[in-house]
């Protein structure tokens, strides 16, 4: 289903309207670069991948049938391209990836020792040391550059699959349906990855705010 807006952009591109291309570029360039950086070893490779994506968009626009939203299509091209390049560069082999995910599945979102043990006579599995109330933190602290840096570093430390999901969902604000389409994963798999990823970022923030 194409939106009116998408249909207008597609027509404009097919006509070769440069202003349509430039505004599409302005809208997506940051996002594409951010996604490319999940896989690329450096900024230069990421920029190349993004440039190739734009060329693929132009080459493919006459054949684009609009079965997905324009955004979904562009992001899919970028991700496929970025993965191909990463494989060529020998990064993130599938084996390494799956082992990485496997290790992560066994881990709980909050450290086990934060809860009362199973044999606790009164409240088994209830909080032993409860979470801090972040509502009490000053807004300047929450919105500081340092907080941003902590989040950025936490996301950089995630597995590529978790990074893809949290980037598409929480930074690019895509719906879960859009993210699943782009990544070719199931809704439930996506939720697991999102849960782990958000949990890791929360942990990093908790550590930083608790300092």
């Amino acid at each position: 289903m194409l939106t009116v807006e998408d249909a207008g952009i597609i027509q404009g591109l097919r006509r070769g309207d440069e202003s349509v291309f430039v505004s599409l570029f302005n809208q997506y360039q940051n996002s594409l670069l951010r996604l490319a950086l999940i896989y690329a070893t450096d900024q230069r490779i990421a920029e190349e991948v993004v440039q190739e994506t734009w060329l693929a968009v132009l080459k493919g626009i006459h054949r684009f049938e609009g079965r997905s939203a324009l955004k979904t299509w562009i992001y899919s091209i970028l991700i496929n391209r970025a993965k191909t390049v990463a494989q060529r560069e020998g990064r993130h082999s599938d084996l390494a990836l799956s082992l990485d995910e496997q290790a992560d599945l066994d881990e709980s979102t909050v450290a086990v020792d934060r809860f009362r043990p199973d044999e606790d006579p009164q409240y088994p599995h209830h909080w032993l040391s409860g979470p801090q109330d972040w509502g009490e933190l000053p807004e300047e602290k929450l919105l500081s550059d340092e907080t941003r840096r902590v989040i950025f570093m936490a996301i950089e430390g995630l597995s590529p699959n978790q990074r893809e999901v949290i980037t598409l969902r929480d930074i690019e604000m895509l719906s879960s349906e859009e993210a699943c389409n782009i990544l070719g994963i199931s809704e439930s798999n996506q939720r697991v990855l999102l849960h782990r990823a958000r949990g890791r970022v929360r942990q990093a923030l908790e550590q930083y705010f608790g300092e």
Binding site: V22, W127, G130, Q132, W134, G135, R148, R202
Partner: peptide, 29 residues
Amino acid sequence: YDCHSYFDQMRHTIRLIGRLSESALNPTV
């Protein structure tokens, strides 16, 4: 109370992650 705080932390986390979209790079063609 503790789970309420935890849930609140998760909502803060999601909101703060979203701020990364305001990245400094200004794209120019």
